[in-house]
């Protein structure tokens, strides 16, 4: 399975890992980090909006968050998806 990453675990950033998923799987989301308990809904919304904008339905997304704002999460996810499309790495 192909996988790709973008971001860091520095303050106000997040590390996003994306992996290909079988058609029909939908979004498989895994959120981790200190702010997840409070912001998981907002984070999921940001992920769904971004994938919708990119026209992607089936994807496994894992987020290691360190206080990233929505716009940072979205930017990291977009960069990770672009890297996946360019080939990613075999996991």
């Amino acid at each position: 399975m192909k996988t790709a990453q973008a971001g860091t675990v520095e303050s106000m950033d997040c590390l996003v890992t994306v992996s290909e998923a079988e058609p029909g799987t939908g979004l498989v989301l895994n959120l981790a980090g200190s702010s997840v308990a409070r912001f998981s809904k907002a984070m999921e919304k940001a992920v769904r909006e971004t994938l919708e904008g990119l026209g992607i339905r089936d994807l496994a997304v894992s987020v290691q968050d360190n206080g990233a704002l929505d716009l940072v999460l979205k930017a990291r996810l977009e960069a990770a998806v672009a890297r996946l499309k360019e080939g990613g790495e075999s996991a």
Binding site: G7, L71, V72, A75, R76, E78, R83
Partner: peptide, 14 residues
């Protein structure tokens, strides 16, 4: 370079 460009774009948008 690719990830930074996306990040800077979104920060500029805001």
């Amino acid at each position: 370079k690719d990830a930074a460009r996306v990040l800077v774009r979104d920060v500029l948008k805001r």
